[in-house]
Amino acid sequence: MTADTSAPPLPSPAELRAAADRLVSALAAHDDPEYRLTVLKRLARRLGEERYPLFLRLLGVVAESDDERAQRLLAETFGTALRRMDMPGGALSSWGAARLPDPSAPLAASAFSGHFFGAAPQRLLGPVEYLTVWHLQRTQRTALGAETFRTALSRMIALLNRSDDARALYPQKLAADAQNELEGAYTRATRERLAAIAAAWKAGQSPEDVAQAALDAQAGDTPANWVVRDL
């Protein structure tokens, strides 16, 4: 099988650090939290849905740094997003969400779109939900490996904990999502894992323990012979 030469090359560590620095500088240049959220959402949109993992990696670069001010800026911007219920999100295919057309309704040409023939609809997911779905569900991406999921999730939670709003509101959102059987967005197993993350996070456990709670809850749920990848 030949390599896919159409995909853009992955940025080097130096390029990632430079991009993360530009992001933090753009956020720091404005005092208005709403404008900062606009900057963050614009970056996610510019990268596009297929490169949302790169957006997560940029957040991870800041989380891994020793720049607490930069971490607070990012976390507080996510706190604003949570208050507004307007998260910079990425999309993953929700397999099994497509439905047959309503037989009582007129048959429109759109009924024979890609969704009807199995291309699943997509929903925008925040960073924690995206990582969880990527790890647990069959999507358009190769599944995320358990160790990579643990590392990425604990790093993300540590970053978000820099904001009181994000630390309080994100577990509430995850708990609500876990109770809401959104059509095709989450499997039952994923809702259980989101609930486990929410409970451990709300209880004030360390980011590492929150990530471990998610892994402990999902033991045995990933079908055998899945191909997994790193972030």
Score class of each variant (00 low, 15 high):
Thr5Asn: 13
Glu147Arg: 02
Arg22Ala: 15
Trp201Lys: 02
Leu231Ser: 09
Arg45Ser: 15
Ala63Ser: 10
Asp102Glu: 13
Leu153Phe: 04
Asp21Ser: 15
Ala199Gly: 03
His135Pro: 04
Leu58Ala: 02
Asp31His: 05
Leu160Met: 14
Leu40Ser: 06
Ala75Arg: 08
Ala196Ile: 07
Glu34Pro: 01
Leu169Arg: 05
Ala91Asn: 11
Ala7Lys: 15
Leu125Asn: 00
Leu215Lys: 01
Leu82Gln: 05
Ala98Met: 07
Ala213Asp: 11
Gly90Glu: 09
Leu169Tyr: 00
Leu144Ala: 05
Leu194Glu: 03
Val133Ala: 12
Asp164Lys: 10
Ser104Asn: 09
Glu15Gly: 07
Lys202Ser: 13
Thr222Gln: 14
Leu92Ser: 07
Leu174Ala: 08
Arg36Asp: 03
Ala105Trp: 05
Arg57Leu: 12
Ala198Phe: 06
Thr190Lys: 07
Arg84Ile: 01
Gln179Asn: 04
Arg83Gly: 04
Ser154Asp: 09
Pro8Asn: 07
Thr77Ser: 02
Tyr130Arg: 06
Ala75Ser: 06
Ala14Asp: 15
Arg46Asn: 14
Leu73Met: 03
Asn180Val: 07
Pro223Ser: 12
Arg191Gly: 00
Pro88Val: 08
Ala91His: 10
Tyr130Gln: 09
Arg69Tyr: 09
Ser206Trp: 01
Ala75Cys: 08
Pro127Tyr: 06
Leu215His: 02
Pro106Met: 06
Glu64Arg: 15
Pro106Trp: 11
Glu49Asn: 14
Val227Phe: 05
Ala166Glu: 10
Ala146Ser: 07
Asp66Met: 10
Ala189His: 04
Leu160Gly: 11
Ala189Tyr: 07
Leu27Trp: 02
Glu49Tyr: 07
Ala203Phe: 03
Leu82Pro: 04
Glu181Lys: 11
Ala176Thr: 11
Ile197Gly: 03
Glu34Asp: 15
Ala98Phe: 02
Ala219Gln: 14
Arg42Leu: 02
Gly220Asp: 09
Lys173His: 06
Ala168Leu: 04
Pro171Gly: 07
Phe149Trp: 12
Asp4Leu: 14
Glu192Asp: 15
Ala26His: 08
Ser12Leu: 15
Arg123Tyr: 13
Ala189Arg: 06
Glu76Pro: 05
Ala146Arg: 11
Thr151Lys: 08
Ala63Gly: 03
Ser113Arg: 08
Ala185Trp: 06
Leu23Thr: 10
